[in-house]
Design a protein around this nucleic acid. Structure first.
Length: 433
DNA sequence: GTTAATGATTGCGC
DNA sequence: GCGCAATCATTAAC
């Protein structure tokens, strides 16, 4: 600001050059002297920042006691007020940060922010319990405990931030008020400074909220994601499932009833049974060589049991046989040992067919060969049709000439002596879509 | 620590 | 809605 303009403003503000009402107007000599005064003051103001603290303090004192100081101070205040207003007008009415809103919402929903509630963690835990179908009360309490920890840390940190923010704001306000004695600082300027500080601390707060959200997500993932809670099925359950799978290798698609029965016997859910069969089918297909070893094992067990009169206790979990064999409601009779034997023999024959027969003359081989006398019309070496949805053996006549089919109960039925085939839909076929 | 096994999930087609 | 195929994530064996 040039001196002429400053002088004009001072005059407009009603301040005289001597610190009082304008006087001496029209006296060129007096005016020249006053100009010199203002010039000196402005020069001092301009150079004050280049001086040492002590020098500045001395200058400040000099300036404060200068007769022109009130007038200059008032004008500068007026100018600064206008400047601050223009700045404020550009920054007002900022929309709330959507990211911050999302974080806030999530923290409230999870029960971390806002009033403490049992709903967030409790509801989540309940959902988990419903999903898993198991009793995981211990894990629920763990989850709640961890969530409480997160909540506590969050609130502690938030409190710290707020305290630090308030302290810093107070400090800056005091500093500005202190400085306002030597330089013009409008209240709105202080407000603006406070607002800036709040914004800076708000950014830090958002980081805290983000970290807290991440912690909650990790916690949720760890406790509520079923995959993380995977437990291998018991050996007994695996046995039961494998028994069924290899006994129905030609059509390893248990009906809903069969799934329910298997689920009940294995102590797992129907969904888990479905998963197991889904995995089993695809892994059998992918690694048929290895799967056949397993098939051999189960077939051997079956044959061994069959040779002992159809009693399966040797490999079948106790009390499984009766209900296991009629799971699918097909032509098996739960109390029909002969049917059971035939079924198991059927499975065994399938295995032999698939492996191309045993090369060594093990007792197992001999046993099976004997058992199969007269039942060997199936020579297919293909795996069960698991690739196509509708085609394959499951929809063709099970006992007919379907070369892709595997020996199954219908094969046995078709060889029952009368040459007839019970053309009823096997209930253990893959459910219709 | 590595690796195979395994239960669960997801995306897709039907 | 079911099954397949790919994938993830954990478990268990080494």
């Amino acid at each position: 600001m040039d001196e002429q303009r400053m002088m004009g403003m001072l005059s407009q503000a009603g301040y005289g050059m001597q610190g009082g009402p304008v006087d001496g107007v029209g006296d060129p000599g007096v005016q020249e002297g006053r100009k010199q005064d203002i010039g000196d003051i402005l020069q001092q103001i301009m150079t004050i920042t280049d001086q040492s603290l002590d020098e500045a303090q001395a200058r400040k004192h000099t300036l404060n006691s200068h007769r022109m100081k009130p007038a200059l101070f008032s004008v500068l205040c007026e100018i600064k007020e206008k400047t601050v207003l223009s700045i404020r007008n550009t920054n007002e009415d900022e929309p709330p940060d959507p990211q911050l809103m999302r974080l806030d919402n999530m923290l409230i929903a999870e029960g971390v922010a806002g009033p403490e509630k049992g709903g967030g963690a409790g509801a989540a835990a309940s959902a988990s319990a419903a999903a898993s179908g198991g009793d995981n009360a211990i894990e629920h309490s763990d989850y709640r405990a961890k969530l409480a920890q997160i909540r506590q840390i969050y609130h502690t940190e938030l409190e710290k931030y707020e305290q630090a923010c308030n302290e810093f704001t107070t400090h800056v306000v005091n500093l500005l008020r202190e400085q306002s004695r030597t330089r013009p600082i409008a209240p709105k300027e202080i407000e603006r400074m406070v607002s800036i500080i709040r914004k800076k601390f708000s950014a830090i707060e958002m980081q805290l909220k983000q970290s807290t959200c991440e912690a909650v997500m990790i916690l949720r993932s760890r406790f509520l994601d079923a995959r993380r809670k995977r437990r291998n099925f018991s050996k007994q359950a695996s046995e039961i499932l494998n028994e069924y799978f290899y006994a129905h290798l030609s059509n390893p698609y248990p009906s809903e009833e069969a799934k329910e029965e298997l689920a009940r016997k294995c102590g797992i859910t129907v969904s888990q049974v479905s998963n197991w069969f889904g995995n089993k089918r695809i892994r059998y297909k992918k690694n048929i060589g290895k799967a056949q070893e397993e098939a051999n094992l189960y077939a051997a067990k079956t044959a061994a049991a069959a040779s002992q009169g159809g009693v399966h206790e040797g490999y079948m979990p106790q009390g499984q046989l009766g209900s296991y064999m009629n799971l699918n409601g097909d032509n098996y009779q739960a109390d029909s040992v002969g049917a059971n034997v035939q079924s198991q023999v059927n499975s065994l024959r399938h295995v032999i067919n698939q492996t191309g027969g045993y090369q060594d003359s093990t007792s197992y081989d001999m046993q099976v060969s004997g058992m199969h006398r007269g039942y060997g019309h199936h020579t297919s070496s293909s795996p069960p049709d698991m690739g196509s949805r509708d085609g394959g053996s499951r929809t063709t006549s099970p006992g007919g000439e379907d070369s892709n089919s595997f020996p199954n109960i219908h094969d046995l039925n078709s060889n029952s002596g009368d040459g007839s085939y019970h053309d009823e839909e096997p209930s253990n076929k893959r459910p219709k879509v």
